[in-house]
Simulated scan of single mutants.
Amino acid sequence: MPLGSRALEILIALLERRGELVSKQDLMARVWPNIFVEPANLTVHMSALRRALRDGRDGHRFIVNIPGRGYCFVASVEAPKRGN
């Protein structure tokens, strides 16, 4: 399932601070800089991201919501090794 640019930007923001709480305000300021959008926009894009990652399926958790505060990427991430 392809991700839109906003959902991808959310994922990048969460990965950059993996294991840390990223506030909803921080995410919204990064994804929609200098414009006002309803908080529901973040919820819609977060849902798309979770669907794409299959978050919660088969016991795999990637993103945890801290109600009223923000989100945290909790899965371990391993970069692919490059050949010489």
Rank of each mutant, 00 (worst) to 15 (best):
S23R: 10
R82K: 13
S5H: 14
K24G: 06
I63Q: 04
R17E: 10
K24R: 06
Q25C: 04
G83A: 11
V31Q: 05
L8A: 11
A52H: 15
L8M: 09
M28N: 06
L15E: 13
F73H: 09
R82M: 13
G59P: 01
R6K: 14
I12W: 11
T43Y: 00
L53A: 01
D55T: 06
D58A: 14
G70H: 08
Y71P: 01
G59V: 04
E9K: 13
K24A: 08
I12P: 04
G83I: 10
C72G: 02
E20S: 14
N34F: 05
A13N: 08
R57I: 04
L53C: 01
P80F: 05
P67S: 15
G68C: 09
R54W: 03
L11E: 03
N41E: 15
L8C: 04
E78S: 09
M46T: 13
G19H: 11
S23P: 05
V77E: 07
C72R: 07
G70K: 03
R69A: 13
V22W: 02
I63E: 03
L42S: 00
E78H: 09
S5N: 15
G56M: 09
L14W: 03
R61V: 15
G70Q: 06
F62K: 01
E78T: 10
L11C: 03
E9L: 11
P39E: 15
G59C: 03
A79E: 07
K24F: 04
R61Q: 13
A52T: 13
L8V: 01
Y71F: 15
G59N: 03
A13F: 03
R61D: 09
E78L: 06
E38M: 12
E38F: 11
E20H: 14
M46Y: 00
F73K: 06
M1W: 04
I10Q: 01
E38C: 14
Q25Y: 06
P39N: 12
M1Q: 10
R18E: 08
L11A: 06
R51I: 04
L21C: 03
R51G: 01
F62C: 04
P2I: 12
R18F: 03
I12Y: 11
K24N: 07
R69L: 14
E16P: 05
M28T: 11
F62S: 01
E20R: 13
V44D: 07
V64W: 02
D55C: 02
S47D: 14
A75Q: 05
R18W: 10
A40Q: 08
I10N: 01
F62V: 07
E20D: 15
R57P: 00
P33F: 10
W32C: 00
E9A: 14
E38R: 15
V37T: 11
H60D: 09
V44S: 06
R30V: 00
E20K: 13
L42V: 08
M28D: 05
V44T: 11
A40H: 07
A79L: 10
A40Y: 06
V22H: 02
